[in-house]
Structure formats: structure tokens, C-alpha cells
Amino acid sequence: MVKDIIVGAHYGLKDWLGQRITAAFMVIYTVIVLALLIGQEPLTYEVWYAFMADGFMRFFTFLFILSLMFHAWVGVRDIWMDYAKPTSVRLALHVITLLALLGYTGWAVSILWRL
């Protein structure tokens, strides 16, 4: 009789799926934004500012920032999990990565909210 007891923290599937959903969102965002920007040529400061300050754009750019940070977290964490073997080193790298990404999120969102 086969008894497969699945153990672990069970965050693997959620992270895996989240990484893919955020990836798909970012690709769609990039394609649409590039297409819209190409239609705005020549890109002056006023045009660029008005484009990014638009309510819809701010909504989607905010989601893009969150997607990017989550996606980067899973990806960089996977790199550390593969190569940083000592638990103390790995923990330190995880914490540094997480703090950096949280800081970047605040920084990028604050740029958006100043518009």
C-alpha cells in the first residue's frame, strides 16, 4: 500500500501560481502600455506625466508594482534556496531581499501617489 504523506509548509503551490499570475499580468501591462505610449509620440514631459497620472493607469501601475515585487520575491528566494545552503546565510539573504523589496515597493508607490 502506498502511503504518501505530504509534509511541508504548503506555500509552494501558492507561490508558484502567484509567480505565474503576476508574470502574465506584467506582460499584458507592458504590451498595452507600450502600445499606448507609441501612439503618444513625441513623448514630452507633459504627455508622459498626464499618461502616468491618469486614474486607470495609476490603478494598473500600482498593481504592476505589487506584481513585480511578489514575482521578484519568489524568484530571488528560489535562487537563495538553490545556492545558499547554511541556514544562517540563507535566512540573512532572505531577510535582506524581503526588506529591499518592501522598501522598493514603498518608494515606487510613493512616486505614483505624488502624481
Binding site: 502616468m52 521578484a72 524568484g75 535562487i79 522598493y104 518608494w107 515606487a108 512616486i111
Partner: peptide
């Protein structure tokens, strides 16, 4: 992916400056 992650501060800085 690692390169993009490491250069994120530069990209956010450029985004901020441009706006």
C-alpha cells in the same frame, strides 16, 4: 532575473526622475 532585481533601484530612480 537576478540582473533585473539588482538593477531595480536604478529603474525606480529613473522612473522617479522622469516624472
Amino acid at each position: 532575473g537576478a540582473g533585473l532585481f539588482l538593477m531595480l533601484p536604478l529603474l525606480i530612480f529613473l522612473f522617479e526622475l522622469s516624472l
